[in-house]
């Protein structure tokens, strides 16, 4: 009698576990954006790809020691053009913002938001307010010029054999000193994904 009750209990527990498992697979749920259970797809740059690329590029830049060479710290950096040569429509801020935050945390670099490639500024109001303030005070506007610019390129390479597809995303960045136009640091990070279809988790 005891063993029958035990078997029944075990069966009920197993069925409950099975049903719960099914429920979590089908229903929407929150996952950690930086965790290992995010979706991996072959047709786009996923959030973990941006994270990994930014992390490794920041580590490479910090380990190079070039940021210590600026005459004053924190050095001012402007974000130049990041070319997107992939087939994807991506916002390159997914990469540069992470790098900016990380460099800002180090206390060695601050980013200007009132200067950008082709005159396109990130914070137009700050630029206008600065100009207006200087005009009202009868002074020339003193904009802090960047010591560094950060430029780069995103590349994509696709190959397939049979039904197995492979995609490589290349993230290239250069840190240039404005005064002489020399690239003090250059970094490249490759992320390759292979498979037949997208999956959940790594």
């Amino acid at each position: 009698m005891k063993s029958t009750r035990f078997t029944l209990l075990a069966l009920t527990a197993a069925s409950a576990a099975f049903l719960t498992g099914c429920a979590t697979q089908n229903n929407a749920k929150y996952v950690d954006s930086q965790g290992p259970n995010t979706i991996v797809s072959l047709n786009s740059i996923n959030i973990q790809d941006w994270n990994t690329a930014a992390d490794k590029l920041v580590a490479s830049l910090l380990a190079s020691g070039v940021l210590e060479r600026a005459p004053e710290l924190p050095a001012v950096m402007a974000i130049s053009r990041i070319r997107n040569n992939t087939q994807q429509q991506v916002d390159t801020d997914s990469l540069t913002k992470k790098i900016r935050i990380a460099l800002n945390q180090t206390g060695k670099v601050v980013t200007t938001t009132t200067m950008g490639p082709d005159g396109r500024v990130e914070d137009a109001m700050a630029a206008d307010a600065g100009a207006m303030g200087a005009f009202m005070a009868g002074q020339k506007q003193v904009t802090k010029l960047p010591y560094y610019t950060l430029s780069g390129k995103l590349l994509e390479d696709r190959v397939s054999v049979g039904s197995t597809k492979q995609v490589t995303y290349t993230f290239q960045l250069s840190l240039t000193t404005v005064k002489d136009g020399l690239a003090l640091w250059e970094g490249e990070e490759l992320i390759t994904k292979q498979g037949q279809r997208s999956s959940v988790g790594w």
Binding site: S33, N51, K97, I101, A102
Partner: peptide
């Protein structure tokens, strides 16, 4: 916390 401190493979 940092912007890039997630899980890596």
């Amino acid at each position: 916390s940092g912007p890039t401190g997630g899980w890596k493979q």
